[in-house]
Design a protein around this nucleic acid. Sequence first.
DNA 1: TAATCTATGTGAATTTATTCACATTTCCTA
DNA 2: TAGGAAATGTGAATAAATTCACATAGATTA
Lengths: 225, 225
Amino acid sequence: MLTPINILKKIPLFSSLSESDQQNLTSLLRRKLLGKGEHLFRQGDEGTALYIIVQGRIKISLSKRADNVTLAILGQGEFLGEMALLDELPRSADAIALEETQLYILNRKDFLSFLAGNTHTVYAILNSLSRRLRRMDDQLAEMCFLNLSARLAKQLVELAETQNPGGDPKACDLNISQQELGNILGASRESINKELKILRDKGVVETSRNSIRILDLEALRKRMP
Amino acid sequence: MLTPINILKKIPLFSSLSESDQQNLTSLLRRKLLGKGEHLFRQGDEGTALYIIVQGRIKISLSKRADNVTLAILGQGEFLGEMALLDELPRSADAIALEETQLYILNRKDFLSFLAGNTHTVYAILNSLSRRLRRMDDQLAEMCFLNLSARLAKQLVELAETQNPGGDPKACDLNISQQELGNILGASRESINKELKILRDKGVVETSRNSIRILDLEALRKRMP
DNA sequence: TAATCTATGTGAATTTATTCACATTTCCTA
DNA sequence: TAGGAAATGTGAATAAATTCACATAGATTA
């Protein structure tokens, strides 16, 4: 069930909180609905809230660049805008709903006053941010030193795991266009297509419009060193 | 003068503390000296301390990879190992002294007990981590979408600005080898050399052993879109 | 349902960066 | 100060990915 408290438990930033802290935090949440293609916020906007995705998908992108860079596509249980809670800087990217999306909102003020009474939460957050920094160090190194074939394999595995947390080894459909994959991986649409052809010829994936079906997740794992 | 308190004032994480808080923190610091080439810590080590660089330079790198990736080169007034204070995970990279280096050490236990009495410091840290995350988002996008020429220009400008905070428009020497620049930018030593030749031919830089002299910072800025 | 739009598939030419193979230069030290 | 190690400089061959130029397929709507 997607109760607020169950949503909180899935968020690394909050999952280590005690049950009662989670209940308190839950009482501060408000709801919001977004239609497909609607902006949640734009680069440069003042940011004063954290959003938690209850249902649907949000794309984080830098549209100001000539190349349209996609930083992330977030789904159910993931959250965004958390940096606005921790510093006073404007939004560093755009956030757009890829489909009809339902969110919880947590305001900066509410969050900070919650923090003031929860030392434990503060340490949980420091811990969580620290892990994210470690992870980004890794990602940076990978972007830099892996070729497209390896990066694509890695991205597909990652998408499969987030869309299919059970770790089901069976077939799994990813709802993403080849253009979007290119935006995420910093590659052209055509290059993505050519890499997918190689995977298709080996029977690792099947492709169709706006969708990639993963047939052999293990084979993908072997391609990401 | 490089007294402990003057060092603290230069660190974004601590510069906003009151004079008395800075004095308290200073009393927790110990000294350490490292010779050129000496390891401060290695990937996988248990991490229990934060280090502040008083004098010298420390390289953070991932030597386990086939390609030797350099994540950062830190200098006077910068700090490292802070993630070990915030989570319990082992060191995620190697830290090596590039030259004779003098450090202050702040132990995890001491730091955490200091934090317990300094809410203000906690927020300063959250703020600082948040900014670093934003910066890494940018870096990731750049790595991905800028070509070597632009990335090199950007890196040179960045190095010039950190080594020369006054923003002096005059000539500026960077003490770094071409191999090291390659490790930072995810490029081969030869490619760096060829890009530098282009800049040299245009009179933008001069090169010599372990050193790049920037003659025209503005020209570099124009090359990084 | 025909027209249109969006997404995918593919080959050829081109660009970008790497690898390889040496020559040269600079620094350090035995 | 002679000899070796480390860093730089450069050309040629190779590999990786992009760009360009279409063809085809699937969805949407007028």
